[in-house]
Design a protein around this nucleic acid. Structure first.
Length: 365
DNA sequence: AAAGCGGGGTC
DNA sequence: GACCCAGCTTT
């Protein structure tokens, strides 16, 4: 691309950005720590999902030492529901490294940033450009879409070959001045105008220079990646109650959702019925014979490669029963105190149902 | 190079 | 349903 055309593209996009950018909580933020938090939360996560978490997190952990000194459970609790929980673990691990190695000040050197856990090429470039004004281009899903269309890049967008071309193109396009604004402008264009379906080319500052637009191919680029169908999973869970307290277990051995709490649950195989397995779970979990379980609700949720249908039952333990006591990884907890534990989304849905029915019960009594 | 990792929004 | 999202890490 000719340098004069590059200058036109830069100027037009930056002007468009100034006039059209959304007002988001992390705009006009100079603190590298806050930029870092926002970028990590935004990894594979849409803006609207991040907004409520961002403010809460910064309020609870306003600076790097606060995050470094926090307990893991407190961090996970604030992240609960946002997904990809290794992000939260890495965030804290990185905060501790920054305290030890950089005296608590976020490093301004690209290689140092990239070396932190949970920070890859995208996030390192985003922080370096936005927080430190350094000319490192970013390529995310938005930028990939915008540039494949602008430049007419075919091929699987996630392939090494295409990614390599995209990073090069993005870096060539990046102006030396205001690289942070420019990076955000390309992403903003992809998020609001150059969308996956039905892009609004008539409002795009690059429409006259766009290869795909000229070819009428803006909806056939980038090429679609083909993923297999999500596997189905059928699970049963049981809410065991005893004198107003509920039994919860901590996921300690599994890699998935490690350290989160949940109600006892099991994957159903073959012809196992949910109610039968729920009764068995309840008996095993509290060491008592449970006579009857009643259906409570069905939770459907999907995680990347699985679609899960979770049938939830409830069981009441006899008042006079002697329970196995609390132990590491198992607790009997009252409804009010359940808020102090980290629950991922499926368990939170159950929790919401318990609160609802308990509220209804207390209103009628 | 491919898979695993969560969850929600959208069409 | 399938696709997508301000990706990173492990295998």
């Amino acid at each position: 691309m000719h340098s004069s055309k590059r200058a036109i593209l830069q100027k037009r996009l930056l002007r468009w950005y100034e006039e059209n950018r959304r007002d988001l909580p992390w705009r006009n933020v100079a603190d590298p720590y806050a930029v870092w938090i926002s970028e990590v939360m935004l990894q594979q996560t849409q803006v609207q999902s991040v907004i409520p978490y961002y403010g809460r997190f910064l309020k609870k952990f306003p600076n790097i030492p606060a995050l470094a000194n926090a307990g893991t459970d407190a961090v996970l609790r604030l992240w609960a529901g946002l997904g990809y929980y290794s992000r939260a673990r890495n965030l804290q691990a990185a905060a501790r490294i920054i305290v030890e190695r950089f005296g608590g000040a976020f490093p301004g050197n690209y290689a140092d940033i990239l070396a932190l856990p949970g920070i890859g090429r995208y996030t390192a470039a985003a922080i370096a450009s936005i927080a430190f004004g350094q000319a490192y281009a970013v390529v995310d899903g938005n930028v990939s879409r915008v540039l494949t269309r602008l430049l007419g890049i075919s091929g699987e967008p996630k392939s090494i070959a295409v990614q390599s071309r995209l990073w090069e193109a993005a870096q060539r396009l990046l102006p030396a001045s205001r690289p942070g604004d420019f990076n955000q402008a390309v992403m903003e264009l992809g998020a609001t105008i150059c969308t996956p379906r039905q892009p609004e080319c008539s409002s795009c500052p690059w429409t006259r220079h766009c290869w795909a637009r000229q070819q009428g191919r803006q909806e056939s680029l980038p090429e679609k990646a083909r993923g297999g169908p999500a596997r189905k999973s059928h699970q049963a869970a049981v809410v065991v109650r005893h004198r107003g307290r509920y039994l919860i277990l901590r996921r300690s051995s599994q890699r998935l959702l490690k350290d989160f709490w949940e109600f006892p649950s099991v994957e159903l195989h073959n012809r196992q019925t949910a109610s039968e397995m729920a009764a068995r779970l309840a008996s095993e979990a509290c060491g008592l014979k449970i006579n009857s379980v009643e259906p409570l609700m069905t939770v459907k949720h999907s995680i990347t490669t699985r679609r899960i249908e979770l049938q939830v039952f409830q069981a009441e333990v006899e008042r006079g029963a002697i329970l196995e006591p609390n132990a590491p990884g198992r607790r009997w907890v009252g409804l009010k105190d359940l808020g102090r534990y980290a629950f991922a989304s499926a368990a939170q849905r159950i929790l919401a149902e318990l609160r609802k029915s308990s509220g209804a019960a207390s209103r009628t009594t």
